[in-house]
Amino acid sequence: MANMQYRHLGRTGLKVSTLSFGAWVTFHNQVDIRDAKQLLAKAREGGINFFDNAEVYASGRAEEIMGQAIKELGWKRSDVVISTKLFWGGPGPNDKGLSRKHIIEGTKASLKRLEMDYVDLLFCHRPDVSTPIEETVRAMNYVIDNGWAFYWGTSEWSAQQITEAWEVARRLGMIGPIVEQPEYNLLARDKVEVEYLPLYNSYGLGLTTWSPLASGVLTGKYSQKNVPADSRFALDNYKNLANRFVVDDILKKVDNLKPIADELKVPLSQLAIAWCASNPNVSTVITGATRESQLVENLKALDVIPKLTPDILDRIEAVVQTKPKQPDVYR
């Protein structure tokens, strides 16, 4: 297997593994502490140094499991990059959103669950239209100034919202969001390839992308609307995702990608992950796994990245036809 490569997170000095590991869905919902330890150990063994979490994952339990597993594994804190995300912290009126109150209380609560003094990255999990962006920028800087996080970023914000946060930060002499965490895969490309395009140069924005396999659709396992009983789409709270991706047109495209993967002698899942990582604006691709074998398979996508020649990328494009229209450029 290829050795892990490390990339700068946007224009920062922080280096993250090209492939990373996220706790969404799996921790607590499908994985307990013993399994989590095995998965995390396997990920580290494969060179992964970035681990992603959120206060909302399994209502905080995902952070507890990850924190306990890391503690029991005895990892050196400086060897890993840990992120968490704030927005949905609980049922109370001030337990959600990006107010100064929730950002500060939410950060402290996350750190307690993770049993850590700090996270490397803290994300605003969604935009909060009811809180002024200046309040959020000031609160995130307060968190950084107190050493509870080293960098801050956004997840699923619009380019306009990120720009506004940066303009506020510059006006106040503060730190802006240096990373965005958008969905990115062969079926979801607009934000990464068009909307954020001006931000990579203007602000040095890095990306930690999620759902490289479109929630499993790009593994090819959902052919002809077959939903395996042990898969994510079989979980009740993920039915809406299933309805979004498991449609004939998409499944047909997925089937037509298989010959390209076969030609490269790799599983479709590895081709799909490698395709995400081949975008130079992507700092790291967050992968998930419930079993060690899945994790090992995902890591092999590293070997596929060099095989994605311009010709192969064109052939993939001819099948999926999802390339977003680029904005007109007037000279």
Results as ranks from 00 to 15, higher is better:
A261W: 14
L9K: 01
Q38R: 15
V304K: 03
D314A: 13
Y118L: 03
T208M: 14
L207P: 00
K101S: 08
T136S: 15
H8V: 08
Y203C: 02
D79C: 10
A301H: 00
S223K: 14
Q294D: 08
S231P: 04
E193A: 03
N226M: 09
V194T: 13
D249G: 11
I65N: 01
R232S: 04
V179A: 02
E115T: 07
M174C: 07
Q30Y: 06
R244M: 14
S20P: 00
S59A: 15
N141Q: 09
K71N: 08
E72H: 15
D79I: 06
K42E: 13
R126E: 03
E164N: 12
T290L: 01
P212R: 07
V246M: 14
G89R: 00
S158C: 04
Q321P: 11
N281C: 10
V25I: 15
E317T: 13
D314I: 07
A301M: 04
Y6H: 09
G176F: 10
L9R: 01
V285I: 11
Y196Q: 00
V194P: 00
T136Y: 06
N3M: 10
F51M: 07
V31K: 00
Y238R: 09
R189K: 11
L40K: 09
N146K: 13
M4N: 09
Q270R: 11
P177F: 06
R11E: 11
M174A: 14
S202R: 15
S17F: 02
S231M: 13
Y200D: 00
L114K: 06
V31T: 12
D249Q: 14
L308V: 07
S202W: 08
G10R: 08
A289S: 13
K325P: 00
V31W: 04
Y203D: 02
K239V: 10
A23D: 00
L241Q: 12
L86W: 06
E115C: 08
W166M: 10
K225C: 03
D249S: 15
L122S: 02
Q181K: 03
P327C: 07
W88G: 06
N240C: 11
L9V: 04
E297W: 04
Y222I: 01
L40F: 13
I312N: 01
L14K: 05
N146Q: 15
T12A: 10
G67N: 05
S83T: 08
T12C: 09
K252L: 07
F51A: 05
C124G: 05
L19W: 03
S278R: 15
N237L: 12
V31M: 04
W157A: 03
D262F: 05
S223L: 10
E72V: 13
L205Y: 05
V119K: 04
A149E: 04
R77P: 11
D249H: 14
L308N: 08
V56D: 02
L299Q: 01
V129G: 02
R100L: 05
A234C: 10
N201H: 15
E55F: 06
M4R: 09
F123Y: 15
A234W: 06
P182G: 10
